[in-house]
Every structure is written in structure tokens, then in C-alpha cells.
Design a protein around this nucleic acid. Structure first.
Lengths: 159, 159
DNA sequence: TATTGTTATACTCTATAACTATA
DNA sequence: TATAGTTATAGAGTATAACAATA
């Protein structure tokens, strides 16, 4: 037995499956991201919410939830937490009092900037083995795969 | 309001993040895979177990679990289910009666062949937008990213 | 009656910790 | 005392369903 030689790798047939790699790497990215956000006292969805709001034009809770692909009931708690910390504001739409108009505060914008750095850093660590061209290629391929199955990955046309 | 123009896409800044795409696509692959396996009366880990066993040389439960990255306590149930269906066999190692030697049966090999087709089909559906060269490129990039963070993605050297 | 946001419930998944039998 | 496998427990995460207010 040579301990230098790893017996602990996945079956070769799984290493040969792009789908397996996609699933494993994707889950690793998600878990690492969740861990980092948790260390910072947030979770990864908070970033999504702030990012949606920063791009405007989707200010009701239903549209925010749909954009992120989370259930509306889940968004409530996320907004509660962000509101407690003064990062977003909710106010009733006077034209339709069922609706909450959600908006970013200055503190929310600052937090969003911090989140962007965190996300960028995690990504850099994962993509460390790839050069700039390779990263661009990976991005393009993933975007095409994602857009095929989920319209949320098709960039909205600006009118 | 023009209903033709989707407002339901993710924030552009998230679409621009390769890490976001990786996580989203990876989770979609995993979920789709789990759904298909469940429809077939199995789960995705069963495929992993059979694939490990088919490549031999890792026949105790601990090494199987380590290869797949699942907890040993979780492997027990998976093996129970596979054993009930006659796809694997467990027998005590006479040299160390704590250990179970696990092996594939003929039925297990047949099931593994069926699993391979399922996995291939799911992958083909996801990668439909990409041609052969692009798929190979994606695979290479993902493998390098995966291998950097997880030694299970570094193919074992055959002595 | 339908929709928006909210709250409550229930269920899955899995990580952890105990337990046994062997070494 | 340590290890392989097993069983049991507990907690996080989330999908679902019920609910109140408004349209």
C-alpha cells in the first residue's frame, strides 16, 4: 500500500460526467457562500434582495421574490431582517394598499457594496486555477446553459 | 407596460457573476437529478454507490463513504436499500469482523447501466445549447476548479 | 372572488451524537 | 482504548398551506 496514492477520489465515471462536476462545484460554491455570509451575520439571500432593489423597477415583494426565485413567504423574513438593520424600507403603495413598496436605504447601499466584495472574493478563490480568458469562457458557457432552462437568466431588455 | 419584456430576471450584477451561475446551475442539475432518480424509485446517491463499487478496490463502507463524501451513517441506509433490492451484497471481512465487504451483484450492474443512461440523458438536456467542443471545454474548466478545492476530484493514479 | 403580504405547519435532509461489536 | 458499522436524535432549511387585509 502506498499512502501517497489517493484512493479517495470519486469514481472515474463520475469525474467524466460534466453534470456531476456542475452539481458538485455549484453546491460547493453555494455552501461556501452561505458560510461566509453567515460569518458576517447575514445570509446569501440578503445579497440577492439588495441587488434586486439596487437595479430598481421591481419594488413590490412579489416581483422581488419572483426575480430571485424564492417563495414570497420566505421573502417576508428576509425583508424583516434587512428592515430591522435599516437597510431597506417598506411603505404601503397608496394606490393599492395590499402592496409594499420596498426601497434601499443609504445603509443598504453600503452593505450591498460590502456584499459585492465578499462575493467577488469567493469567486476569485474558486476560479483561481483559471486565467481571465478561461473565466470568460466559463461564464459564457454557464450563462447559455442557465438561460436555456430558466428565463430569469435571460437579461431583461431595456426599453 | 409591455408584457413581452421580462422583468423577471435576476439582477444584472448577479448574471455577471460566474459564482452565481455556478451555484444556480449546479443546484438545478442536482435537483433535476434527484427528481429523476426519485421517479425511478431511487436516489442519486445510489448511483454513486454502485459506480464506486463497479470500479472496485474500495469495498469497505468507510472507503465508499469517503469516496462519495457522505457520512458513514448515511451510507448505511443507502446500502440497506440496495441490498434489499439485491443490487449489492455485504459480507463480513473474516480478517476483521468489524468490516463489511461490499460488492456489486449482477442485478446491481444492470441497474448501474440504467443509471448511466439516466445521468447521460439529464446531462444532454442541460448541455443542449453547447456543441461537442464547448462541452469538452466546460468539463475541463470545471474539473480544474473542482480539483483545486477537493482532492476527490483528482483522479487516483493507477500504480 | 382574487391577490398581496404574512404567519403557521409540516416535512425533508442531514449532521451529530450515542451505541455495539470487534480489534 | 480505538475503530467499523449502526441507530437515534436534533436542528436547519424550506415547501406548503392557512390567514388577514385589500382590491
Amino acid at each position: 500500500m502506498n499512502p501517497e496514492i489517493s484512493q479517495n477520489c470519486l469514481p472515474l465515471e463520475m469525474l467524466a460526467r460534466t453534470g456531476v462536476l456542475l452539481a458538485r462545484v455549484g453546491i460547493a460554491v453555494k455552501m461556501e457562500t452561505m458560510d461566509r455570509f453567515e460569518e458576517a451575520g447575514f445570509n446569501a439571500y440578503h445579497y440577492g434582495v439588495l441587488a434586486v432593489l439596487d437595479e430598481g423597477a421591481r419594488e413590490t415583494q412579489a416581483t422581488i421574490a419572483d426575480a430571485l426565485g424564492v417563495d414570497r413567504s420566505m421573502l417576508v423574513g428576509l425583508l424583516d431582517q434587512l428592515e430591522e438593520r435599516g437597510m431597506i424600507e417598506r411603505r404601503r403603495d397608496p394606490n393599492d394598499r395590499r402592496r409594499q413598496m420596498v426601497s434601499l436605504t443609504a445603509a443598504g447601499k453600503r452593505q450591498l457594496a460590502a456584499f459585492r466584495k465578499m462575493v467577488q472574493k469567493i469567486e476569485d478563490e474558486f476560479l483561481a486555477p483559471l486565467d481571465e480568458d478561461e473565466r470568460a469562457t466559463l461564464h459564457d458557457l454557464l450563462l447559455r446553459v442557465a438561460a436555456q432552462r430558466d428565463s430569469r437568466f435571460v437579461p431583461a431588455q431595456t426599453v
